[in-house]
Computed example of a mutant assay.
Amino acid sequence: MLVRMTTNPDQPQTRPRRRTPAGAAVLREDVTEAIRAAVFEELAAVGYARMSIEGIARRAGVGKTAVYRRWRSKLHLVLDVVSAVAVMGLPTPNTGSLEGDLRMLYEVTSRALRHPVVSQIIPDLQAEAARNPEIAEALQKALEQGQEGVASKILVGAEQRGEVRAGLDDELALDLISGPLYWRTVVAARGRKLPKGYLDSLARATTEALKAL
């Protein structure tokens, strides 16, 4: 027998509440963040090659199943973490001058690069990137969305203010902005404190170099 459903037009209509499908796993955000934090710590401690899902799970205080519910392999886990950091990005300075913007960018970047965990992870991932195209692509994306993205915006602002000429060689300009600090912090000094006044001098010298292009 068919039963016809009727509604009363005088009564407010409510949408049925969506329910989580029976048996579906609900991924807790606090567990996800604990795993991501553990990835950074494990990378700094043992490097990508020796890093394992077991070690990550142990450091995060969860079971291996919790990790595999979110990522199907160590590679995909690391790629996700690197991409997530890239999306966070850096704040775009807006001091009103090229030198001021560069100085602020260098301050934020140098603090990040000198962090003990970061200073250990970056060289290791770069070495892996030479052997793994997927990691290389993720790191390139991180650079493009991170410091290089901010540096590009700084150049646009400087061009609009007439501090640099239009039509600069973008790649050369970005090399001038990003290269020296990265070399000094990651390669030469390896996380050690920069000399007093170094960032001021670097911002001033880079500004003059960009104006001369």
Rank of each mutant, 00 (worst) to 15 (best):
E137A: 04
N132F: 02
P93D: 04
P133G: 12
N132P: 00
G146H: 08
G96W: 06
A151D: 13
R103E: 06
L90A: 06
G149M: 03
Q145R: 02
K153S: 07
K153A: 12
L155P: 05
E128P: 03
I121F: 05
Q120K: 10
R165Q: 11
N132W: 06
A151F: 00
A136V: 08
N94G: 15
T109K: 08
T95N: 05
P123A: 13
I154W: 05
E107C: 08
Q140G: 07
G162E: 10
G100C: 05
R103I: 13
V108F: 05
T92C: 14
P91F: 04
I135Y: 05
T109D: 02
I154V: 02
L98I: 07
I135L: 11
L105S: 14
Y106K: 00
M88T: 15
A129Q: 06
A130F: 09
Q120N: 12
G89W: 09
Q160L: 14
R165A: 14
G162L: 10
E144M: 12
P116W: 11
L105G: 02
V150Y: 14
M88S: 15
R165W: 04
G96L: 01
P91K: 04
V150K: 01
L125W: 12
Q160I: 12
I121T: 09
I135R: 07
Q145K: 09
E148I: 00
L143C: 14
R114H: 07
I154T: 04
A129T: 08
N94R: 15
Q147G: 11
M104H: 01
G157C: 02
R165T: 11
H115T: 13
